[in-house]
Amino acid sequence: MKKLNKIAKIFLVLCAAVSFFVVAGCGNNSSGKTVKVGIYGSDDRIWKPLANKLKKQGINLKLVEFNDYNTPNKALTQGELDINAFQNYHFMNDWNKVNKGNVVAIGDTYIAPQRIYSDKIKKLSQLKNGDKISIPSDATNEDRGLRVLRQAGLIKLNNSSMYTVKDITENKKNLKITPLDAAQTAHSLTDVAAAVVNNDVAQDAKLKPNDAIYKEKINKESKPYVNIIATTKDIKNNATYKKVVKAYQTEYIAKKIKQVYNGSTYAAWNYDFK
């Protein structure tokens, strides 16, 4: 009888142990899906809170930070990332064309106007003949930067679909417009009269949006400049990636975007492009 009681106790202990591991396993996110996300600069302050929320859904975001615009799509197409979030439609389409890529958008994030900054003047009318202006040098942002200068009334351009400095047809002040790596435009302010700076670069350089001497106007023609979450064509229907997009496109993240970028950047998935 004692032997039977002993066996019964051992059986109960084993059952309890099995139950513990089953419950522990069900409550542990370590078995969840991991998604590697390529991001740029200040966006970590948007994606880290999102990562915390997605943990509750069993999705573990691994953020991979880049400090240039050239690498994230290469990393994506080489399988080092699952998705990335640093580029706009215009940039993605141009990158695919040049690199014969298969990168596709799976969700809109935000739109950020380019701005013209200066350490030397307070308004555009103070630009002098022959002054230097720097703009981003990658094809998409050089095109956009020149459009901003045209919008500001500083230059005229021909009818090209993708502008470079060679497409300037009128430059009354003889401005010396120099393309630089996008990340260097903010640093160039010590050497130039003004610079067209991407919003994320301006944020990382601690430039204040209200100090800009010109802000790009956002309208229906701005849609190609909406930033996106992207992946490759063969995995665009991945259910986990769709959950990431859905979690991003919420009022919580819209408020986070406004907070992180000091009101200078707008959630794009519900923006009214007039």
Rank of each mutant, 00 (worst) to 15 (best):
Lys2His: 12
Lys3His: 15
Lys6Met: 07
Lys6Asp: 04
Ile7Lys: 10
Lys9Ile: 12
Ile10Gly: 01
Leu14Pro: 01
Cys15His: 02
Ala16Met: 14
Ala17Ile: 12
Ala17Phe: 07
Ser19Met: 10
Phe21His: 00
Phe21Arg: 00
Phe21Pro: 00
Phe21Gln: 00
Gly27Met: 09
Gly27His: 03
Gly27Val: 07
Asn29His: 01
Ser30Val: 07
Val37Arg: 02
Ile39Thr: 01
Gly41Met: 03
Gly41Ile: 00
Ile46Gly: 02
Lys53Ala: 09
Lys55Met: 13
Gln57Ala: 03
Gly58Glu: 00
Ile59Pro: 01
Asn60Trp: 05
Leu63Pro: 00
Glu65Asn: 11
Asn67Lys: 11
Asp68Ser: 06
Asp68Met: 00
Thr71Phe: 05
Pro72Gln: 06
Asn73Leu: 14
Lys74Asp: 08
Glu80Ile: 06
Ile83Met: 13
Ala85Arg: 01
Phe86Leu: 12
Gln87Asn: 12
Tyr89Leu: 11
Met92Val: 12
Trp95His: 10
Trp95Tyr: 15
Lys97Phe: 12
Val98His: 03
Val98Lys: 11
Val98Met: 11
Lys100Met: 04
Gly101Thr: 13
Val103Trp: 07
Val103Ala: 13
Val104Thr: 10
Val104Arg: 09
Ser118Val: 08
Asp119Ala: 11
Lys120Cys: 09
Lys120Tyr: 13
Lys122Ser: 13
Leu124Lys: 06
Leu127Arg: 01
Lys128Ile: 02
Ile133Arg: 00
Ala139Lys: 10
Ala139Ser: 13
Asp143Cys: 06
Arg144Val: 12
Gly145Thr: 10
Leu146Ala: 09
Ile155Thr: 06
Ser161Phe: 14
Thr164Glu: 15
Asp167Cys: 13
Thr169Gln: 15
Asn171Tyr: 12
Asn174Leu: 08
Leu175Gly: 05
Lys176Asp: 14
Ile177Tyr: 02
Leu180His: 06
Ala182Tyr: 07
Gln184Asp: 10
Gln184Pro: 01
Ala186Met: 08
Ala186Pro: 02
Ala186Lys: 01
Leu189Thr: 11
Asp191Thr: 08
Val192Cys: 11
Ala193Arg: 00
Ala193Met: 09
Ala194Lys: 02
Ala195Tyr: 08
Ala195Val: 12
Ala195Cys: 05
Ala202Pro: 06
Ala202Gly: 11
Ala205Gln: 04
Lys206Cys: 07
Leu207Lys: 04
Asn210Arg: 07
Asp211Cys: 09
Ala212Glu: 14
Ile213Arg: 03
Ile213Ser: 06
Glu216Tyr: 04
Lys220Cys: 00
Lys220Ile: 04
Lys220Tyr: 07
Ser222Gln: 09
Pro224Asn: 14
Tyr225Ile: 10
Val226His: 05
Val226Arg: 03
Asn227Cys: 03
Ile228Leu: 08
Ile229Ser: 04
Ile229Trp: 06
Ala230Leu: 06
Lys233Cys: 03
Ile235Gly: 00
Ile235Trp: 01
Ile235Met: 08
Lys236Asn: 05
Lys236Tyr: 04
Ala239Leu: 05
Thr240Met: 04
Tyr241Ile: 04
Lys242Ile: 02
Val244Pro: 02
Val245Tyr: 04
Ala247Ser: 10
Gln249Glu: 11
Tyr252Leu: 04
Tyr252Ala: 13
Ala254Asp: 15
Lys255Asn: 14
Lys255Glu: 10
Lys256Cys: 06
Ile257Ala: 02
Lys258Arg: 09
Lys258Gln: 14
Lys258Tyr: 06
Gln259Ala: 12
Val260Asp: 03
Tyr261Thr: 01
Asn262Ala: 12
Gly263Phe: 10
Gly263Asp: 08
Thr265His: 01
Ala267Pro: 15
Asp272Cys: 03
